[in-house]
């Protein structure tokens, strides 16, 4: 995993590719058909950090669920390394919107869980988990149970648990939506640092334009339902050089935020948003 960040990997085959993806389902409450996604095309190259931003209910999460393998699309295809996605797999780690770390496992055992499942030998688990806990600043909390931690700490556990298994791609579904604003800024910088250092391929969903621009190499602006990619925006500053400090000064970044905002703003017509 030493692929350089940024768009320099033109020659490498896409890690994820999505072709003509559409999805509709029947809402269990209203019994109405919902068109969640419409003709989405997308390529994610190794080492890419792609963020998807769009209004509430635009099908962002549906898209992630398809990539994760939880949902089969109604039409079109999604591939990982050229193979059609059919079910969840350890090659695609997911960090969930709601916390999905297990309350009955300690921090250590939560992070080690994926490795245990994959049958990694005990000494190696020890070593990798220890490296991970220090990487995300969880040293000293290994024996704690999730409910004893703050929201931010729990989110670090969720990230660490996914990272430690070293999946090729990490899918993140608004992972910082539930933490307070100050903690969120810290977590975002930490995540940026972590991805730059590990060179991970990340697919990140958010409804915050600033977050999308701050974290991504490319930002996909999605339209309201049915979700369609309106525009793909390249973020001008390399990820390694980003910080919230710089975000507030850099005009190029500010302009990008403005531009994405203008793309998304016109779409927020539905009053039935479910997330803030």
């Amino acid at each position: 995993m030493t692929v350089p960040t940024g768009g320099a990997a033109q020659a490498a085959p896409p890690t994820i590719s999505v072709e003509g993806l559409s999805h509709s389902f029947t809402d269990p409450q209203t019994r109405k058909t919902v068109h969640a996604l419409d003709d989405v095309n997308l390529e994610i190259l190794p080492g890419d950090f792609v963020t998807v931003v769009g209004p509430s209910g635009c099908g962002k999460t549906t898209l992630l669920n398809i990539l994760a393998g939880f949902i089969r699309p109604s039409a079109g295809k999604a591939f990982v390394n050229g193979r059609a996605i059919e079910r969840p797999g350890a090659d695609r780690g997911v960090v969930f919107q709601e916390l999905a770390i297990l309350p009955w496992r300690t921090v250590y055992r939560n992070i080690a869980h994926g490795l245990e499942i994959q049958g990694v030998a005990k000494p190696e688990i020890d070593e990798r988990v220890n490296r991970m806990t220090s990487l995300v600043g969880l040293e000293g909390f290994e024996g704690h149970y999730p409910h004893q931690l703050s929201g931010g700490m729990r989110q670090r556990v969720a990230v660490a648990r996914t990272w430690v298994s070293d999946p090729e791609i990490i899918l993140m579904d608004e992972p910082f939506a539930a933490v307070d604003a100050m903690t969120r800024l810290t977590l975002q910088e930490e995540l940026n640092d972590l991805t730059v250092r590990t060179g991970k391929t990340v697919f990140f969903i958010t409804h915050s334009v600033e977050e999308a621009v701050f974290l991504g190499d490319r930002v996909m602006a999605l339209s309201a339902r049915p979700g369609r990619i309106k525009e793909e925006v390249h973020v001008p500053v390399p990820r390694a050089e980003r910080s919230w400090e710089r975000m507030s000064h850099d005009e190029a970044l500010q302009d990008t935020v403005e531009h994405v905002l203008s793309l998304v703003r016109g779409e927020a017509v539905e009053p039935t948003g479910q997330d803030g």
Binding site: F25, T26, P28, A36, T61, T62, N65, F70, I71
Partner: peptide, 10 residues
């Protein structure tokens, strides 16, 4: 939220 299986008729 999303349902996974195609919904069965009422």
């Amino acid at each position: 939220m999303t349902t996974i299986s195609a919904a069965s008729p009422p």
